[in-house]
Design a protein around this nucleic acid. Structure first.
Lengths: 332, 332
DNA sequence: TCCATCTTCGCAATCGATTGCGAAGACACC
DNA sequence: GGTGTCTTCGCAATCGATTGCGAAGATGGA
């Protein structure tokens, strides 16, 4: 910046003000300095700017992987969410700092906050960090989390009404004549637990008693689903419907069922959760509970910027929508 | 840091050195200071550190969208690539700065470099920025690009052998008895042009003359593919095979063909390109040219760090592999 | 010409961590 | 006690942009 100042015959203060569009610098001088900077390839050093202003113009995008130790890429849902959030953030002229936290230590959130690398944090999924998030939220405002509506939650959250979604899906299968419906999902994940609860509610309301042996602990990865489903089949437990905690689980379950000679949807109905793009293209197209990620991402970023500017915010839980396709209608 | 220094009864220099693990500070003192920092929740301010060291410990991930003005999320291929690159980078303890550049201005690359926000740049796709990349590469070393092997390329590149991949796919369809094979892909995109070239080569080698009317300008978005395919069908041009420039194009084309009463693969074979996860689950499963993204991402990050450390590097073009599934075997 | 008022712009401090240089202290040995 | 050697650690400058305060210059009116 000193070079540009010398070239323009002014001080660095004037260059700084001119580049910032400060109206106390005459328009002609501003244009002249901007042009000089352009031709000499000068661009403001963001490290110095961040240090001085205590603002980074950056939003941290965090994917905590407490339950799932494997790679980030495993779940198309995360990727789609990341893409949409990145779109929203860059659309507002901010940068995106992507952060995958694999094995959260006790103070991981504080460390990220205090490294001062971002002006706000978006966290995709609560993982097993509900308490850590609560603790952070008490002292750190610019924080929005994607996840479920857990009890005693004190952080700002955006998500779907997981209970309602799972109820919709289960009621749909019951309406199709299914009576013994299994639930496939990783134990412990907060959103999955809510979905399980919705599933149980729907069963109870229909006067069906849930069988414990029909809750299989399928994890989010393709590799872990297949053995779970196979174990369920081999256990001899009868079932004519499957509610999967995610579309990836659903699709893998369908493949496993087909391989075992159980046809979908003739013998077994399958319903997923998320409505990722995969769902539309699978064979047959997957019936699933749609989460509107575009709206969710937009809401998250909106809330975050509101919190950064100090405005009050409220959590958002969107009503899910059942998308009936081909894996849940036996007579079709 | 001054607070920690006061608490420890030493100067900030000593704290800095202790936290950096400098051996000139006695081990006991180092442990003591580290513990003090931990209990008081002190973390080094990265802005200040970056400014002083002229290093950000961050890799910039850039998705230039010159041809495609729409959202980043449109292409699952990009997302999968981003996920894998992020894994590789965070695995090395670096941060990821995600950057979507929608309408590249003349000096966009220089601006990114000179803002000093990252220690190196990974660019996903050449878009229409071949010349800009060449210009940048002449003066800026830490740069690796995913893309095709374009003539007069001076920047370090990782990608597939697009010509060979398209040849494989085309030869496969010819071997299945297909004679009039269409090519679906956006004009202008460098990698697509290479695939088109491979397609033409295979046709020529088989003694088939390519028909210009069978090259349809389908863009990467779902919305643009359907009208293109419909126009191709309505034009009355006969075809019994389709090579699509991406899996998304292929899957959309299949849907459009089915809707028009043309069955796949009985009447028309379809082969895609990329082998994204969608391909395995579509109905029927998609025959496609596989690009090993895991290997590609690993190679890109590897090369980038080599370049950052000043080591010599060479571009990598991986041999593609044809994955035959259900959309290309008529008799099946 | 002189003073009041407004515009324009520079000095210098600041953000927080890093590090070369050299000083102070510890220790041993003569 | 004096001197040489090694260890330990602090001073102060540095990275580059920003900004409050106040001074210099411009303008106008009496």
């Amino acid at each position: 910046m000193a070079d540009i100042a010398k070239l323009a015959g002014v001080s660095t203060s004037t260059v700084s003000r001119a580049l910032a569009g400060n109206p106390s610098i005459p328009q002609t001088l501003r244009d002249q300095i901007t042009e000089l900077a352009r031709t000499h390839g000068y661009v403001i050093n963001q490290s110095a700017r961040s240090l001085r202003l205590q603002k980074t113009h950056t939003i941290g995008l965090i994917v905590p992987l407490g339950h799932e130790r494997d790679q980030l890429i495993s779940d198309p849902f995360f990727l789609e969410m990341i893409g949409r959030l990145a779109d929203e953030i860059t659309g507002r002229g901010y940068e995106v700092l992507l952060n995958k936290v694999v094995a959260p230590r006790a103070d991981w959130l504080r460390r990220i906050v205090q490294s001062h690398r971002s002006d706000g944090l978006l966290i995709i999924g609560q993982s097993d960090q509900h308490d850590a998030l609560n603790a952070l939220a008490d002292t750190y405002r610019p924080l929005v989390v994607w996840g479920g509506d857990l009890p005693e939650r004190r952080y700002c959250t955006v998500g779907s009404d997981n209970i309602a979604g799972a109820r919709l899906a289960t009621q749909h299968m019951i309406a199709q004549g299914r009576r013994r419906i299994a639930f496939l999902g990783p134990p412990g994940a907060p959103e999955v637990e809510l979905r399980r609860e919705g599933y149980l509610q729907a069963l109870n309301e229909a006067g069906l008693s849930p069988s414990p042996e029909l809750c299989a602990p399928a994890h989010f990865t393709v590799e872990s689903v297949e053995p779970s489903v196979r174990a369920l089949i081999d256990s001899g437990a009868e079932f004519d419907g499957v509610l999967a905690a995610s579309d990836v689980i659903a699709v893998t379950a369908i493949n496993t069922l087909n391989a075992a000679g159980r046809s979908v949807p003739t013998e077994v109905s399958v319903v997923g959760f998320d409505d990722i793009s995969l769902a539309r293209y699978s064979a047959p197209p997957l019936t699933t509970v749609r989460q509107d990620l575009a709206k969710g991402a937009s809401a998250m970023v909106d809330l975050l910027f509101r919190r950064i500017s100090g405005a009050p915010t409220e959590s958002v839980f969107m009503p899910p929508e059942l998308v009936v396709r081909g894996t849940s209608i036996p007579e079709a």
